[in-house]
C-alpha cells in the first residue's frame, strides 16, 4: 500500500474518534478520544515526512491531555443532559446547513490546488538549497525557524510568555493587597 492509502485509513479513524468525542456521555472518554485524534495526527506527520512535527505534536498532545484530566479531576466528569429544546433544533440545523455550504465551496476551491504529492517548491527552494551554506543547519525546519524566520519565533515566545502570565493571573486565588492599607 502507498502513503495515500495509509493516510486515508488514519484520517477515517480520526473522523470516527472526533464524532465519538463530541457525542460521548462521559467527559473523560471525550478527552481520551481527543488523545486518539492527536496521536493519529502524529502518525500522519510521520508518514508525511515531518519528524520534527511528530515530536512536537506528541509532547503537546500529552500536555493537553494531562491538563484536561486535571481540570476534570477538579470538577465533574459527567455532562448534564437536558431534553431537546427549540434552541437546540436551531443549533443543529444551522450546523448542518453551514457544513453543507462550506463543503460545497471547498470542493470547488481545491480545484486550483496541486494534487496531493505534486507540490512545487517556490519560496522554500532558497531555504532548502541555501540552508547548509547560509546557516550551517542540516535540519531545514530548524534552519528556517531559528535563522531565516527567527523574528516569527520571537513572536511565538512572546505569545507563550503572555499566556503563562495570563494563566498565573487567572489561577491566583487571592488578589494582591494594596500597599497603602
Amino acid at each position: 500500500m502507498d502513503t495515500e492509502t495509509y493516510l486515508i485509513i488514519i484520517l477515517v479513524f480520526m473522523i470516527v474518534m472526533a464524532i465519538a468525542a463530541i457525542h460521548a456521555r462521559d467527559l473523560l472518554s471525550s478527552v481520551i478520544a481527543q488523545g486518539a485524534i492527536g496521536y493519529g495526527l502524529v502518525l500522519c506527520f510521520l508518514l508525511l515526512k515531518a519528524p520534527d512535527l511528530a515530536i512536537v505534536q506528541i509532547v503537546a498532545e500529552t500536555i493537553t491531555i494531562i491538563i484536561m484530566v486535571a481540570v476534570l479531576h477538579d470538577s465533574t466528569r459527567f455532562e448534564t443532559r437536558f431534553p431537546i429544546c427549540r434552541r437546540d433544533i436551531v443549533n443543529y440545523s444551522a450546523a448542518f446547513v453551514l457544513a453543507g455550504v462550506l463543503l460545497y465551496y471547498f470542493v470547488h476551491a481545491i480545484a486550483v490546488l496541486n494534487p496531493f504529492g505534486e507540490h512545487t517548491l517556490r519560496m522554500s527552494e532558497a531555504y532548502v538549497y541555501q540552508a547548509i551554506e547560509a546557516t550551517g543547519a542540516t535540519n531545514f525546519v530548524k534552519g528556517v525557524l531559528w535563522d531565516f524566520r527567527a523574528l516569527d519565533t520571537m513572536g511565538e515566545a512572546a505569545v507563550l510568555f503572555t499566556t503563562a502570565i495570563g494563566v498565573l493571573a487567572i489561577l491566583r486565588l487571592k488578589g494582591k493587597k494594596q500597599s497603602n492599607q
Binding site: 512536537v56 493537553t64 525546519v141 516569527d152 511565538e156 505569545v159 507563550l160
Partner: peptide, 20 residues
Amino acid sequence: PLPQTMVLTAIVIALATNSM
C-alpha cells in the same frame, strides 16, 4: 520545510491557547 515550520509554531501556540 516552510509549512512544517509554520505548523510547528502553530502547534505550540495552540497548546498555549488551550491551556488558557
